[in-house]
């Protein structure tokens, strides 16, 4: 479960002055559902997700992630989330197994329980054959699988995925999509960001359209269609964003 309350992030930039990257956003994501933040580049998607993952601290407002407050319990939040983006790379000099083991240990697991958990995930994702290879020797697809294994090892309740399929080939991106759907069916709360309309259309139970740091519209695809009287998500998006321009 994710509940944001007036979540705001302001950057101070020498050239541009004050930038309201996330401007008082309120939304809720529920377990067993996929919430999609749809927005153009620079709309504030990544900053929102970084705030939820406690990588950045909100300027004002807050959010409760898996029942913990971002500002007061950031470590408990981190313990209960899996964060994945194209920017979350792996340690190249560690093997796949060492990588997943490291994050498992940081999550408080150890010994045979951790080993079993890793075996289980590696079997599930087909990582076994390259488990002892160093991450910098893996293909992009293999790396993505290891990244998924990394987010899964502590079995978090909330998955935060920042443009998870950007720049991936068809096969790898299918692996990711399968993983996202799998999370939903296991009752996890999933929030993802995307600028790909078809992906939002296919995957998300709720879509939030974000532009210039503000959440402009929210609802299921049907609800958005009802509100705008348009059928195509791209049209809906342009209309929603364009109206405020």
């Amino acid at each position: 479960m994710i509940i944001t309350e007036n979540l705001t992030k302001i950057f101070r930039d020498k050239k541009r002055g004050e930038v309201r990257a996330v401007d008082g956003i309120d939304f809720q994501c529920f377990p067993g559902q996929i919430y999609g933040l749809l927005g153009a580049n620079g709309a504030g998607k990544t900053t929102t997700l970084r705030l939820l993952a406690t990588i950045l601290q909100p300027t004002s407002g807050t959010a409760r992630v898996a029942g913990y407050d971002l500002n007061t319990q950031p470590e408990m939040v981190r313990r209960n989330i899996g964060f994945l983006s194209t920017a979350t790379a792996l340690y190249g000099r560690l093997t796949a197994r060492e990588t997943v083991e490291y994050f498992g240990r940081l999550g408080g697991q150890n010994g045979s329980a951790l080993a079993e958990r890793i075996e289980e995930i590696f079997d599930l994702l087909g990582i076994q054959e390259f488990a002892s290879r160093r991450c910098d020797k893996l293909s992009t697809g293999m790396k993505q699988k290891v990244s998924i294994a990394r987010t899964l090892v502590n079995d978090p309740d909330v998955m935060i995925l920042d443009e998870p399929t950007v720049g991936l080939d068809v096969m790898t991106s299918r692996t990711i999509v399968r993983f996202i759907k799998d999370c939903r069916s296991r009752g996890k709360t999933v929030i993802l960001s995307t600028h790909v309309m078809s992906e939002a259309e296919k995957l998300c139970d709720t879509i939030g359209i974000i532009h210039a740091g503000k959440l402009l519209a929210e609802g299921s695809l049907e609800e958005l269609r009802g509100k705008t009287g348009l059928d195509d998500l791209e049209e809906i998006f342009i209309r929603t964003v364009g109206l405020t321009e």
Binding site: T54, I55, S85, A87, T88, L90, F103, L106
Partner: peptide, 14 residues
């Protein structure tokens, strides 16, 4: 440079 900083900052470690 390698992009692992986000990975580790979002992990359960203070």
């Amino acid at each position: 440079e390698r992009g692992t900083i986000e990975t580790i900052l979002a992990s359960p470690v203070s």
